[in-house]
Amino acid sequence: MTLFFKFDFNAICQIVLEQILNDNNIKYKSVGFGEIEVLEKLSKEKQDQLQNALANYQIDIVENQKSILVQKIKDTIIDMVFNEDVVVNVKSSVYLAETLEHSYGYLSNLFSEVTYTSIENFIILQKIEFAKQLIIKQEFSLTEIAFRLNYSSVAHLSTQFKNTTGITPSAFQRIIAKRRALNQQNKTD
């Protein structure tokens, strides 16, 4: 039997983080999106200890203010794309600027500098990623997926999907289905 999971990475990370902080007896206040306010001054020794504990989970303490902001941009975008409850009526550039209280130009430059990609590309990448998840679930038609991801038409979604991944949504669906069948077969063999 193969089970398929859907994760909320943010929630998982949050839980792991709180666990580790509690284990290290650090008083903190959760601000959300990977940001934690430590309510005491940490000694260098204690900071190293925490860093080592987090490294097991490949969690990094980000000291750089720029990195923190980039992470916030990413989190906001992911939330915007994946979270149904977040309804964005304005352009994503406006939404980002308002939410993060920085000019879009600043955010955009900063983002490209740190991540080797643009905010626009990152948004597209995340949208296509979400589309992939929905396609694999096979619960929704392409039309519904296009609507849900704010595309004007299926053709628009298909074009962007193909431009981003090099393959069409139907080919993607076919490949993943056959790949799973193959894995299943290998397991039973």
Binding site: V154, A155, S158, T159, K162, T168, S170, A171
Partner: peptide, 15 residues
């Protein structure tokens, strides 16, 4: 086969 999908894919190839 869903010919509509194939037709769409062909249009994608020629986009």
């Amino acid at each position: 086969s869903n010919i509509n999908l194939i037709f769409e894919a062909a249009k994608q190839d020629l986009a």
